[in-house]
C-alpha cells in the first residue's frame, strides 16, 4: 500500500513539473509578445509607414525606406529561391526517389537549413560585395535566397511524396510523359502543401538580420535601386536599438512589432492551409 502511494506521489510530482515547464513556456511567450506590442504600438502610426527617417530630434520621421527595402529584398530573394528549391525538390522526389543521391541531397539540405545564417552573409560578401566594391540590395537578396533554397527543396520533396503513386500511374497509363504528370498531376495534388512550404520559407527569411549585415548593409535614404546599399527593417532595428536616442528605440520597437506580426500571420496562414487541406492532424 505504501509503495503504491509513494509511486503515485512521485508520478504526481514529476507531472506537476511538466505542467510547470509548460506554464514557463507560455509565460515567456506572453511576456515577449505583450512587451513588443506595448512598446511598439505607440510609434506605429502613419508617419512610420509613409515618411523616411528624419534627423534626430525632428518629429515625424518614419521607416518607409526600410519597409520598402525589405519588401524588395525579400521579394527578389523569393523569386530566386523558390524556383530553384521547387525544381530541386521535384528532381529528388520524382526522378530519383529512394536513390542514394536523393538521400545525400536530403541530408545536405537539412544541414544547410540550419547552417548559421551569418556564415552565408560572409560567403556572399566574398563573392558579390568585395569583387564589386560596394554593398548592394542584390547581394542581400542572394544571401536570403541561399537560406531559402534548402527550406523550399525539403518541403517540396515531402509534399510531393504525399501524393499517391496510383495517381501518377493513372496519368502514365493515359500516355502522359513524366514532365506532364509532374506539372498536371503531382503539382496539383501537392499545391497546398508546397504553398505552405513557400510561406514558411518566406517567414523564415523575413526575420533574418545576420546575412544582411554584410550584404545589403543599410541606408538612411529611400531607394529602389538594387545596386546600392539598401535599408531593411531588421538591420535598422539592430542599428537603432544599439543607438543612443529614445526616438530610435521607439521606432525599433515598432519595426519589431511589424515583423513579428507579419511572421506570426504567415505561420498561422500556413497552419490554416494545412488544416483545411489535409484535415485535422
Amino acid at each position: 500500500m505504501n509503495i503504491i502511494t509513494s509511486r503515485k506521489i512521485k508520478s504526481f510530482l514529476v507531472l506537476s513539473l511538466c505542467v510547470g515547464a509548460t506554464l514557463l513556456g507560455f509565460f515567456w511567450l506572453f511576456f515577449i509578445l505583450i512587451d513588443v506590442i506595448v512598446q511598439g504600438v505607440g510609434a506605429l502610426g502613419p508617419d512610420f509607414f509613409f515618411n523616411d527617417p528624419a534627423p534626430v530630434g525632428m518629429a515625424g520621421g518614419g521607416l518607409r525606406n526600410a519597409l520598402i527595402g525589405q519588401l524588395i529584398i525579400v521579394l527578389v530573394a523569393t523569386l530566386i529561391g523558390v524556383p530553384v528549391g521547387l525544381l530541386g525538390g521535384t528532381f529528388i522526389a520524382e526522378y530519383c526517389r529512394g536513390t542514394s543521391y536523393a538521400r545525400v541531397i536530403g541530408v545536405l539540405s537539412d544541414t544547410m537549413v540550419s547552417v548559421p545564417s551569418i556564415v552565408v552573409g560572409t560567403f556572399i560578401y566574398a563573392i558579390l560585395v568585395k569583387p564589386l566594391g560596394h554593398f548592394s540590395g542584390w547581394a542581400g537578396s542572394v544571401a536570403l535566397a541561399v537560406i531559402m533554397i534548402p527550406v523550399v527543396l525539403r518541403t517540396t520533396e515531402d509534399m510531393l511524396k504525399l501524393v499517391p503513386w496510383s495517381l501518377r500511374e493513372a496519368a502514365f497509363a493515359l500516355g502522359a510523359p513524366t514532365y506532364k504528370v509532374i506539372f498536371k498531376v503531382t503539382y496539383r495534388g501537392a499545391s497546398a502543401g508546397i504553398l505552405t512550404g513557400i510561406l514558411l520559407a518566406i517567414s523564415r527569411i523575413v526575420g533574418e538580420t545576420a546575412p544582411l549585415l554584410f550584404t545589403s548593409f543599410n541606408s538612411p535614404y529611400f531607394s529602389t535601386n538594387m545596386n546600392e546599399p539598401m535599408a531593411s527593417l531588421t538591420v535598422t532595428i539592430f542599428q537603432y536599438a544599439m543607438g543612443p536616442y529614445a526616438s530610435w528605440h521607439a521606432q525599433a520597437w515598432a519595426a519589431s512589432l511589424l515583423i513579428a506580426l507579419f511572421i506570426l500571420g504567415l505561420t498561422l496562414t500556413g497552419r490554416f492551409i494545412i488544416r483545411w487541406k489535409y484535415g485535422e492532424r
Partner: peptide, 10 residues
C-alpha cells in the same frame, strides 16, 4: 516564429 532580432531587442 518570433525572429531572433526581436528576442535580441527584448
Amino acid at each position: 516564429a518570433i525572429p531572433s532580432i526581436v528576442y535580441g531587442m527584448w
